[in-house]
């Protein structure tokens, strides 16, 4: 799957979780600045496990990989790639 497609899927899911329009979710903005908290973050991780069949919490990726939608997508792309 292409990086852009992964980013799109993550963006659409996060827009559902946070109830905000997908156009407001800039991929380079840190997740906490988008309003993501512990609960919504774990919801996103559960979505990633179901959609991409990877457990990010257990995959040993760094804190920086979680920081933005873009870095998350890049990380998923690397693991599934």
């Amino acid at each position: 799957m292409k990086l852009k497609d992964i980013e799109g899927k993550l963006g659409r899911q996060l827009s559902i979780i946070l109830s905000i329009p997908v156009v407001d979710l800039k991929p380079e903005i840190p997740l906490h600045e988008l309003g993501v908290d512990s609960l919504s973050f774990v919801e996103l991780l559960v979505f990633i496990e179901k959609e991409f069949k990877i457990k990010l919490m257990e995959s040993g990726i760094t804190r920086e990989d979680f920081r933005t939608l873009h870095s998350l997508a890049r990380c998923i792309n690397k693991i599934t790639g």
């Binding site: 997740l31 906490h32 993501v36 908290d37 512990s38 609960l39 973050f41 804190r63 979680f66 920081r67």
Partner: peptide, 12 residues
């Protein structure tokens, strides 16, 4: 919280 629990893990 960031260093011990991880990013966005404040509540836990």
């Amino acid at each position: 919280a960031l260093s011990q629990a991880g990013y966005l893990m404040f509540m836990p």
